[in-house]
Design a protein around this nucleic acid. Structure first.
Length: 442
DNA sequence: GCATGATCATGC
DNA sequence: GCATGATCATGC
């Protein structure tokens, strides 16, 4: 194909990409020239470069694909929501993390920034099993450069990841360590996966890649990355400090006082999401989402504790389906994805008169050893669902997690592998475990 | 008081 | 209609 773009100009590369909008590769390129397997399911980005741009980048370097323009080409899957808009199917992988060399890098000249400072992002509508040539491009391609205020958070995230490797903890990395930029798992998984060495520990680590969290990709899709949100985040002010400032006016106040300040009241004695919704109001959002938290993939959790810091309840997570979990892998499970996140504990504590007050707001993420224990409970659950779905791990079987019901009512039943119907269930973090976290770790 | 079971209000 | 975040209810 004769190139009809200027390979040194980002804008020209973008304009050329627009020719793919609404189309599939098979519709715009000469398919007779394709030497790869027609049913190829990976490599969409490379196929776009090779057959649409007619350009084969040198993938052996850490430079961007179109190095003369300084542009890295990315393709990423999106899903259509019921209202017709799109959302990210998953995180956007930027580049592999090299544990050995990252520790010697400086942010400005980092391999991440060298490669991804300016990205041309193409979105395609994800459909399971569809070969790359038949994936349809939707939305407009985005020539994306990180807004300055986001770049500060991303730099802090990058430093956090680098420091963890310096501390000899590459194997303990978690997406919950950071906000916009995550160290996501990237590798074959399973027992045969080849693990990587790290510079300051003899423990081998699973391979990981720098990625933008799905919530951040959604902000790119929505074009809201530079929107002024509920937070004033910038140089010297990270997410945590911004959060502290947001809650400052309400700290120490009773629930009744906060309700009055925000004109937001409990709907009735069964308004079970009241504290969660009140928390979102304090952050300046309506009851739906907190944009900055959404972007950073932060998981707010309200915890009510008594005078002795004992939680009133354990902590619930999304439900699972018996028929799904038996085919699932741990790292694909929603429980895994949740506990790798960074949590914001918003703690209401009973005062001497038994009245709840906003006592403390604190970030936390789950330690590696506890994530391993949660994995054990999950694997045990998966195994036992296959044998007898009515007999699953209870709270006395693990110090960390257990399984309990989570349904709308007694009629909310779903099928089991045994052919029976049982109430829906979900994973919970034990009350005593939450107590330990609240009392000793935040 | 705790473990376990049951259910609520809300948003999409 | 259902997933979610969470609290309410019960029996030992």
């Amino acid at each position: 194909m004769q190139p009809t773009y200027d390979i040194t100009s980002p804008q020209s590369l973008l304009d050329f990409a627009k020719g793919l909008s609404g189309k599939t590769l098979a519709e715009v390129i000469d398919m007779t020239a394709v030497t790869e397997n027609r049913s190829n399911k990976g490599d969409l980005g490379n196929m776009v470069e090779k057959y649409y741009y007619g350009f084969q980048p040198d993938n052996s370097t850490h430079l961007p694909d179109f190095q003369d323009a300084g542009v890295e080409l990315k393709t990423t899957g999106v899903l259509r929501k019921s209202d017709g808009s799109y959302k990210a199917k998953e995180r956007l992988v930027l580049t592999m993390i090299n544990y050995m060399s990252l520790v010697d890098e400086q942010w400005d000249s980092s391999s991440l920034m060298e490669k991804c400072r300016l990205m041309l992002i193409l979105f395609y509508l994800y459909e399971k099993g569809l070969p790359v040539f038949d994936r349809r491009f939707v939305l407009h391609p985005s020539l994306f450069e990180f807004p300055e205020e986001d770049l500060e958070i991303i730099r802090q995230d990058w430093e956090t990841i680098r420091r963890k490797i310096e501390d000899g903890k590459a194997h303990e990395l978690s997406e919950g360590d950071t906000y916009y930029l995550g160290a996501c798992r990237k590798g074959s998984g399973g027992p045969d996966e080849k693990l990587r060495e790290q510079p300051f520990s003899d423990v081998l680590a699973k391979s990981r890649a720098f990625s933008l969290k799905p919530s951040y990709v959604n902000r790119i899709i929505d074009g809201h990355t530079s929107e002024v949100g509920a937070f004033e985040v910038g140089a010297g002010i990270g997410i945590e400090e911004a959060t502290r400032r947001k809650f400052q006016p309400y700290l120490g106040k009773t629930v009744a006082e906060i309700s009055t300040m925000l004109n937001f009241h409990k709907k009735g004695k069964n308004d079970k999401s009241f504290y969660a919704n009140l928390t979102k109001r304090m952050l300046g959002a309506d009851t739906k989402t907190v944009p900055e938290f959404d972007k950073a993939g932060i998981e707010p959790k309200t915890v009510r504790v008594d005078r002795n810091w004992k939680p009133a309840e354990p902590m619930s997570f999304p439900g699972f389906k018996y028929m799904d979990i038996i085919h699932e892998d741990w790292e694909k499970s929603s429980f895994f994805k949740k506990i790798e996140k960074r949590f914001l504990f918003v703690i209401f504590r009973k005062d001497e008169y038994g009245e709840l007050r906003l006592e403390k707001v604190s970030y936390w993420n789950m330690p590696y050893a506890d994530r391993l224990e949660a994995q054990r409970v999950w694997e045990d659950t998966k195994r036992r669902v296959g044998i007898d779905a009515s007999d699953l791990p209870g709270s006395k079987e693990s110090a960390v997690a257990h399984v309990r019901p989570k349904g709308q009512d007694g009629k909310d039943l779903i099928p089991t592998p045994q052919g029976t119907s049982l109430g829906k269930k979900c994973f919970w973090l034990n009350r005593d475990y939450i107590a330990d976290v609240v009392q000793n770790h935040i």
